[in-house]
C-alpha cells in the first residue's frame, strides 16, 4: 500500500500493520478530530482483523473529544476482531489516559518497535 497522507496523519503499511503517525501536535478541534476518525475508520471498515498502530510522538495536546474518537476507533477495531496499539505517548498525554483510566482500555507501549512486536497473528 502506498503511503497515505491526510492533513493530520501519515499512514504506512508495514508487515500488514497500518502504522499511523499524527502529524499535528494538537488533536483538539472538531474538524481535526473528525478527519482523523474518518481516516482511521477507512482502515478498519471492510477489513478482517485490521492491525493498527497509532504513533503519538508529535502529539502534545489532546481533548476529551479526541479520546472519544479513539474509543470509537477501538470499538470498531474490536468489532472486526482486529488489534489497536498506541505508542510513544508523552508523559503529559499519558497522564490524561491515566486520569480517565483509558490506559486500561488501550494497549499502550513505549516504543514503536515494542508496539509492532506486540501484535499477534491469527
Amino acid at each position: 500500500m502506498p503511503q497515505i497522507t491526510t492533513p493530520s496523519l501519515i499512514i504506512d503499511e508495514l508487515k500488514g500493520i497500518y502504522v499511523c503517525e499524527f502529524t499535528s501536535s494538537r488533536i483538539l478541534d472538531e474538524t481535526n478530530i473528525k478527519e482523523i476518525g474518518d481516516a482511521l475508520s477507512k482502515l478498519v471498515d471492510g477489513r478482517e482483523s485490521p492491525r493498527i498502530l497509532l504513533d503519538f510522538l508529535n502529539v502534545d495536546h489532546l481533548s476529551s473529544a479526541a479520546l472519544g474518537m479513539l474509543i470509537n476507533v477501538n470499538n470498531r477495531v474490536k468489532q472486526r476482531k482486529g488489534q489497536l496499539r498506541l505508542c510513544k505517548i508523552r508523559p503529559q498525554i499519558l497522564e490524561v489516559f491515566a486520569i480517565t483510566k483509558l490506559n486500561r482500555l488501550f494497549k499502550i507501549l513505549p516504543t514503536r518497535e515494542e508496539a509492532m512486536q506486540s501484535f499477534t497473528t491469527h
Binding site: A65, N72, V96, T100, L102
Partner: peptide, 21 residues
Amino acid sequence: DPRDPENLFKASGRGILLIES
C-alpha cells in the same frame, strides 16, 4: 463517572473529569 467500567467504552463524558483533575 466515565471511569466506571460500564462507561469506559463510551465515547463522551470525560470533559468534566479532566477539568476537575
